[in-house]
Design a protein around this nucleic acid. Structure first.
Lengths: 195, 195, 195, 195
DNA sequence: CATGAATGAGACTTCATTCAT
DNA sequence: GATGAATGAAGTCTCATTCAT
């Protein structure tokens, strides 16, 4: 009774991600993943040695997606566009941030996961810093390195997402609007300082 | 064979928190909690109707602790001290943030938990805004309301904690030092603007 | 739905032994043991940490039973009675030897089990040697130490049991009858030699 | 992607035997056999209808090997050489006896296997008896038929092997040395009796 | 108050087996 | 001939939960 459906590893990972986000971490069962993907549990074990390996592959996949976005950012986009993208993922039901935070929490007891998430976060910081450098000749506020600005922006994006995830009526629109103003203000400071 | 040890609900909650943070969410079992507290599983059921209720009580307890800290903040402390306290909890092994994020992730599938965490986050925002108002007569950067500054600071604190949790060598010291400089810088802007 | 039936570890081990012998080693499942004992699988796990531990306890129990028999042998019985007892366990459906051989085969991949079975076998050898020494002043055949006679008798008993287990029509009666004659003959040799 | 390796049934049986002995009966899986043989599971199903059939073929093959040895024994070798060969297979890691006992235990729940093993054992007994008859004109001990001597020798060989399999420091050398003495002694008895 | 024995559902995992290619 | 993808039943084990004592 073997149906060679040829379901790919990628398909399974996608189903697994949905499962993880929709069912929550403690109902993230292989049975649920199998159902979601329309295969049997055995099939999952044909592709992934263990549940942990599946989770690891989810992390890997998530990081790779992030990385490709980051690469585009550093090359083509400027800060304002990065923030625009962050805003679009800042909501009470953000798939992206639910997934990310769930993985972070899983990582608390799995150094491999934790390490990978750490790397990707650091890459984000670096990319943001590079982007800032194309915008600012120097820091707009003395004592705050552009490197740290990169870290802070990333922190703000994650921190706001976190708030939006727990506050149904979080003012995403307003906050991001003013965050934009903040950047304008900072950039203006630089120009004034030049005179 | 009943030992009238008189273990309090609070003791159990404390043990449960430790369990949750140390063992991770998927090894957060009632047996583990019982062992941690030095009682049997039955005892837990004497105090909590279900496991979910225990989790809810953990959230409640955590929120209450937070609330009492917030109250102190609004009344007695100023921003710089709040930040100092945030820095002390920003580390790779932060019990507080591990607990908080674990609860947030649990909340993704439990509106009660999520709601409580949302409330407490909002309270933090408000308290920070109040604190800022005692420091700043108006916003240091046009277009960014003091309310939003409160939100942003809170976001930064959580976002930095998140980074520190996944990056073993995250530069906590340096980042918080420069975050301090940022505040000084902003406050100075206000004073300059006054002239 | 907890019924405090108070089923003892010993009861479970007994059921497990029956299961092992009746169902065979590859159908020796915990479900089968549970059914045999009239409890649920969970109950088994309450008493034994793992399936392997249950098997180990079966071995231990079997060895202890053997040991108590051996002790009686050395103290009260003489060789001929030991052989009588061996004969009674020599059959196509011998519970004892089926169990023993099954454990031996399990031991091929478990040094703990193997070690215990080795110990008990050695004890049997020793006991037999002691028994022989009360019967024979010296060896009836030059060059064969009484120690070795002990080993050989034990080997014969096991070897015959093995044959009986695979040959439906093995002549147990006749063989043991002549084995008795053999001992008589050997003992007689000694007496003749004395003259 | 079919590799016409032309792996023979015999090769698979050999791999399966190794698997059975090395991994033990409960890790005797078709996947393991396939790996051992360097083919995929499907290939095994091309050659054997079921796993049970493979096991049966292992038994068959083992019996045939035994039979050819036995034939040689009856025709060319004398008892002392048979014993020499038995000694060489009497060890803590005897592939032969591990395999044989494993098959015996499997046979407890499979009459086909059991029957075949019974037959081969009986053949061994007969061959030994025939060999003895070329050596002894009559039994060295009254009341013990030469037929029974054949059975007893076979039992000793298996029984000693069993002991060696569970006792790491079983005195194989010494025991077989004295077993040789025993035969010399018995043969001498005959000669003395002739006078 | 608290325990310890028991449960039953469900989790992860393995494995013999099938079948299109 | 042989493979690899898939299945589904069954196995080991965990865990929230119950309840008599």
């Amino acid at each position: 009774m073997a149906k060679p459906n040829i379901i790919s590893k990628g398909d399974l990972i996608k189903s697994a991600k949905e499962c993880l986000v929709n069912n929550g971490i403690d109902k993230f069962t292989l049975r649920a993943v199998a159902e979601q993907a329309g295969v049997t549990q055995g099939t999952i074990y044909y592709h992934f040695k263990t549940k942990e390996q599946l989770l690891l592959d989810i992390v890997q996949d998530t990081c790779e997606s992030s990385w490709s976005e980051i690469s585009e950012l550093s090359n083509q986009y400027i800060i304002s566009q990065a923030i625009e993208s962050a805003k679009s993922r800042c909501s009470y039901d953000s798939f992206f941030h639910k997934l990310f935070l769930t993985l972070v929490v899983s990582g608390f007891n799995n150094e491999t996961i934790r390490g990978k998430l750490g790397e990707i976060t650091q890459s984000e910081n670096n990319a943001l810093t590079q982007s800032l450098l194309t915008l600012w000749s120097k820091t707009p506020i003395d004592g705050v390195s552009v490197e740290t600005w990169g870290i802070l922006i990333n922190a703000i994006v994650d921190g706001l997402a976190l708030q939006a995830l727990v506050q149904k009526d979080f003012p995403v629109e307003k906050t991001y609007e003013e965050l934009g103003q903040l950047f304008k203000g900072l950039t203006q400071l630089l120009n004034e300082g030049d005179k």
